[in-house]
Structures are given as structure tokens and as C-alpha cells.
């Protein structure tokens, strides 16, 4: 084995380790940035570590994808013994634009019977977070998690002065 070969192997080994470390870190991130509505609301720095510390099973949020099994009866039919999925990130399955023409017209033969009604990323976040927060007495107000941007303030027209204008709504 020449010095050159040794060096190459060493570099490759180092590289592998490095990649492995990053991959391991990516598997259980400390923080997750959620910014699907970044225009109107500031992104959420989701404290993943804190939420994992709450002691819930991963499947509470990640369904069957973490390989820890699932308690949902409807999922168990297929996923009772599922291994860890290739991607565990929410956006791996829940698309950011569920109503794009591309997604709506995706090849029907690739759609699993139970997955045709899968929520998009934004809905997945809200259902998961708010649903649990309601049970656990976590924050549930919109701006408890994500504060509104100036664009958001404009969007919701928070600066309009309320006038008892007649003929609105009822007429």
C-alpha cells in the first residue's frame, strides 16, 4: 500500500465519519425551522429536543416513519411492523403545495388508498401541533408560536378603524 493510497483511504474514512456524524445529527435535530408561512408570519424555531423530552412516542408525530410502530388502528394494517422510512422529515411526505396542479394530477397508480387524502405540510404542522397543544395545555394562539410580520399585519388589515358602517354583512 503506497503512501498515496493510504492517504486516500484515510481521507475517505474521515469523510465517511464526517458524513455519518452529520447524518446522525440530522436524524434527531435539536431545532427545526418551520417557515411555510414565512411571508405573513415569522418562522418558528421548533424545539425538537424539548418535544422529544416530553416522553411521547415518536409515532405521536411521525406516524410509522420512525420505525417505532404506530398506535393508529387505520395505519397498523400496513405499518404495524414498518421499518424506519428513508425520510422522517415532515416535508418528505407532506408536500408544501398540496393543491398544485402537479400534485393533484400525480399518477394515480402511485397513490395508496389511505394516502390520497394526505394533508399538506402547513396543515400537518397545525393539526399536529395545535391538536397536541390543546390536550397538553400548550400555547394555541396563532401568535403564540409565530408572530406576524409587517406584511402579515397588512394582510389581516389590523389597522382599519372599526366603523359601525351600516349595510355590511347583513345586506
Amino acid at each position: 500500500m503506497s503512501a498515496k493510497q493510504t492517504l486516500t483511504t484515510l481521507i475517505m474514512a474521515l469523510a465517511l465519519i464526517a458524513v455519518g456524524t452529520i447524518a446522525a445529527a440530522g436524524d434527531v435535530p435539536e431545532q427545526v425551522s418551520l417557515d411555510t408561512m414565512a411571508k405573513l408570519f415569522n418562522g418558528v424555531e421548533f424545539d425538537h429536543a424539548m418535544h422529544t423530552d416530553l416522553g411521547e412516542d415518536c409515532s405521536a408525530c411521525h406516524h410509522h416513519t420512525t420505525g417505532t410502530g404506530t398506535s393508529n388502528e387505520r395505519c397498523m394494517g400496513c405499518h404495524a411492523g414498518s421499518d424506519e422510512a428513508t425520510t422522517v422529515r415532515c416535508s418528505g411526505c407532506h408536500v408544501a403545495e398540496p393543491f398544485s396542479a402537479k400534485h393533484i394530477n400525480r399518477d394515480a397508480s402511485n397513490r395508496y388508498q389511505f394516502h390520497i387524502d394526505m394533508p399538506g405540510l402547513k396543515a400537518a404542522y397545525h393539526w399536529n401541533c395545535v391538536g397536541c397543544h390543546e390536550q397538553m395545555d400548550g400555547p394555541t394562539g396563532c401568535q403564540d408560536c409565530h408572530t406576524r410580520t409587517t406584511a402579515g399585519d397588512d394582510f389581516y388589515q389590523i389597522n382599519v378603524v372599526h366603523a359601525e358602517a351600516a349595510g355590511r354583512g347583513g345586506h
Binding site: 396563532c142 394582510f155 389581516y156 388589515q157 389590523i158 389597522n159 382599519v160 372599526h162 366603523a163 359601525e164 358602517a165 355590511r168 354583512g169 347583513g170 345586506h171
Partner: peptide
């Protein structure tokens, strides 16, 4: 522009 901001939930109490 609306009469009340869109984050004003008091509109749900409006009746005519």
C-alpha cells in the same frame, strides 16, 4: 378595506 380587521373575532357575534 373591511370594517374590522380580519383577526377580529367579534364579527362572529354580529347578527342582523
Amino acid at each position: 378595506a373591511p370594517d374590522r380587521p380580519f383577526d377580529d373575532m367579534s364579527v362572529f357575534d354580529e347578527t342582523f
